[in-house]
Amino acid sequence: MLDYQVFLQQLITGLSNGMIIALIAIGYTMVYGIIELINFAHGDVFMLGAFLALTLLGALGMEAWGPTGQVFGVLLMLIGSAVFCGGLNWSLDRLAYRALRKSSKLSLLVSAIGCSFVCMNLGLFWGGVPMKVFADGNSAAAPKDFPAIIPQINLLGDGFLRITPADLLVFAVTIPLMVALTFMVKRTRLGRAMRAVAQDPTAASLMGIPVDRVIGATFFIGGALGGFASVIYSLYNNTIGFQMGTRAGLDAFTAAVLGGIGSLPGAVLGGLTIGCVRSMSDQYLETRWTNTIVFCILVLILIFRPSGLLGSNRREKV
């Protein structure tokens, strides 16, 4: 392949993965924006969404469905995982975080780390379910193959570049979601309530806003986006494992910080940047150094521009 052909191909991969990272990053940024908590468990909620998708796929035998049936199957997985992840994220807030609203930020963060570990363990158990898609439950900890029910063809024929239906799916799912989310935050009552709570929870509750319910809704929406992301991630990368949440979470958090935490367009910009950096590093450097590079970006951004690329400069309150 020609030099610039390789470059463009990596750019496509990078943008597709970047959109997925962005969708996860939005979950971090929304929760951080509203209660200043790095929701450590978010990456693991995402992981469990992928496990649910694989379970649905296996239980309903989607591999045998025809092309139209599989379109329906993908929709079913998207909705199933979104509702599941949203509900799970909401329950984490309800059970573990809500009681700690008045405690120090450190306790809240420690509790989130605890939730992350609990979810990771649930993923490990899930991998041991005796189903064909989980290799009959043998070696629960091993990564699982996610069947490629989307045809692996090149839409451009024998063209110069390779764009697969999976690439299209990523954009077809992420872009409408992001538009809808932006609309929701900017234009609806719930969105206005969220922005009010983010700015000042006490004042918001004095204005009659049910603060806890708004925070719960934020967790649900953030989790649901993670659920959508988990399905397209699985269909795009075709392998899932119970430890994938940590890596995905770290990438997505880096993306959120890079774009400016609390900012939705920032999360998208950050996600795309991280996705492209990863694919370029895989191609032009070495895959084994990619994680190191992403981490160095995180540190450099935090040191030189802690408010991120698009974030507003908020000072820590006394």
């Binding site: 573990a96 405690s103 420690v110 509790s111 605890g114 570990f117």
Partner: peptide, 13 residues
């Protein structure tokens, strides 16, 4: 992981 996780959640709570 479950034990570590629950230890953290319950201790903080």
């Amino acid at each position: 992981y479950l034990i570590f996780g629950l230890a953290l959640i319950l201790a903080v709570r």
